[in-house]
Amino acid sequence: MENLHKTSFQFISEPSDVNFGGKVHGGMVMKWIDQAAYTCARTWAETYCVTVYVGGIRFYKPINIGEVIKVDAAVIHTGNSSIHIMVEIYSRDFSVHEFEKRRIVLSFLFR
């Protein structure tokens, strides 16, 4: 069986993701977090899941338009009716090969 408790998305940030300051909008980042966490939870649970709680979001560094984004989600705890998912966001410029952690979510609760 494959390692189903981890999910990773990679894509390029787009001009439609921009805020008034010229960086990726925080709401867009939260959308990416929710999508990756849902995919991870749904894969683990093999059934429909909903977001009940999101906490611990910290915006450390801005993400620039045109950067490669990597969103990693992993199951860190399961209960009788809950799944805790940790999500980390990384980005890099095309000229750099290593991702840099940009944003982190410390805990999610999906049921």
Rank of each mutant, 00 (worst) to 15 (best):
M1P: 03
M1C: 07
M1L: 07
E2S: 12
E2A: 11
N3I: 12
L4V: 13
F9K: 00
F9C: 04
F11Q: 10
F11N: 10
S13N: 08
S16Q: 12
S16R: 13
V18K: 07
N19E: 08
F20P: 04
H25T: 06
G27K: 13
G27H: 15
M30R: 07
M30V: 10
K31V: 10
K31T: 14
K31M: 11
I33P: 00
I33V: 10
D34T: 00
D34E: 02
A36Y: 03
A36K: 03
A37V: 03
Y38Q: 03
T39E: 12
T39Q: 13
C40H: 04
C40Q: 01
A41N: 05
A41D: 00
A41S: 05
T43E: 06
W44C: 06
A45S: 12
E46G: 15
T47N: 14
C49I: 11
C49K: 09
T51C: 07
V52S: 09
Y53I: 09
R58A: 10
R58C: 08
F59A: 10
F59L: 11
Y60R: 13
Y60A: 14
K61F: 11
K61I: 11
P62K: 08
I63T: 05
I63S: 05
N64S: 14
I65S: 01
E67D: 07
V68N: 13
V71C: 03
V71K: 02
A74Y: 00
V75A: 00
H77L: 06
H77P: 02
T78Y: 14
T78W: 11
N80H: 05
I85E: 00
M86K: 14
V87I: 10
I89N: 01
I89C: 03
S91C: 14
S91G: 12
R92G: 05
R92P: 02
D93E: 13
S95G: 04
V96M: 11
H97W: 14
F99C: 13
E100A: 15
K101G: 10
I104C: 08
I104A: 11
I104R: 06
L106I: 14
S107I: 15
S107G: 15
S107W: 09
F108K: 02
F110V: 10
F110C: 07
R111P: 01
